[in-house]
C-alpha cells in the first residue's frame, strides 16, 4: 500500500486506495436512520419502498457517504483528515449486498503550508453496478520540523 506521505512526495498518479468492502444489513440501516432521526419509510418498510418503485428498503444517501469517508480516513490514518467529500447516488443499494468502496488519488497539492490530495471515489455493488461516485479532498497534517 502506498502511504499518503509517499503519494504527496511524488508517487506516480493515479494511486489506488485499498478497497473497503461493506455489507450493510437491516440493522445498520435502522441504526443509521435512528442516529440521524431519519423517519423516511423507504429505509425501514419494504412494502412502502416497493410501492414507490424501489427494489427493497434502500441504503441512505448519507450512509453511502459515510462508507466513502471510511474508505478515505481508513487509508489516511493519522496522516491527515478528510476536508471535502461529494458524491452522487446513481443506483439504489439494498441491504444484504456487498458494496465495494474504491478510490484513486488523482492529484496532489504539495504546498508545505497546506499539503493535500485529491481523490475520485466510487461504490460498486456485487453485480458491478455503480451505486455512487464522487470526489474528495484530503489535507495532510504538517510534519513536525
Amino acid at each position: 500500500m502506498t502511504t499518503p506521505r509517499a503519494v504527496l512526495a511524488g508517487a506516480s498518479l493515479p494511486v489506488p486506495l485499498p478497497e473497503l468492502a461493506v455489507t450493510p444489513d437491516h440493522t445498520q440501516l435502522f441504526m443509521f436512520s435512528a442516529v440521524t432521526w431519519n423517519r423516511h419509510h423507504i429505509h425501514y418498510s419494504k412494502d412502502a419502498a416497493v410501492a414507490e418503485g424501489l427494489p427493497d428498503v434502500v441504503v441512505q444517501r448519507a450512509l453511502l457517504g459515510n462508507f466513502l469517508a471510511r474508505l478515505l480516513t481508513g487509508w489516511l490514518g493519522e496522516a491527515g483528515e478528510l476536508r471535502e467529500l461529494s458524491w452522487k447516488v446513481l443506483s439504489s443499494a439494498t441491504p444484504g449486498r456487498t458494496l465495494r468502496c474504491q478510490g484513486d488519488v488523482i492529484g496532489r497539492e504539495a504546498d508545505p503550508a497546506a499539503p493535500g490530495l485529491r481523490c475520485e471515489v466510487r461504490i460498486i455493488d456485487e453485480h458491478g453496478t455503480l451505486i455512487a461516485a464522487g470526489k474528495a479532498k484530503l489535507v495532510l497534517h504538517s510534519l513536525p520540523s
Binding site: 423516511h40 414507490e52 444517501r61 457517504g65 461529494s86
Partner: peptide, 26 residues
C-alpha cells in the same frame, strides 16, 4: 405521510423522494 424529513416538504406535485447527492465540507 412517508416520514421523509420536513426539510424536503415543499409544495410540489411529487411525493416519492430519494437521496440524490451531497457536497460535504469539513
Amino acid at each position: 405521510a412517508d416520514g421523509s424529513p420536513v426539510e424536503l416538504a415543499v409544495p410540489i406535485p411529487a411525493q416519492r423522494a430519494v437521496g440524490g447527492g451531497s457536497e460535504y465540507t469539513i
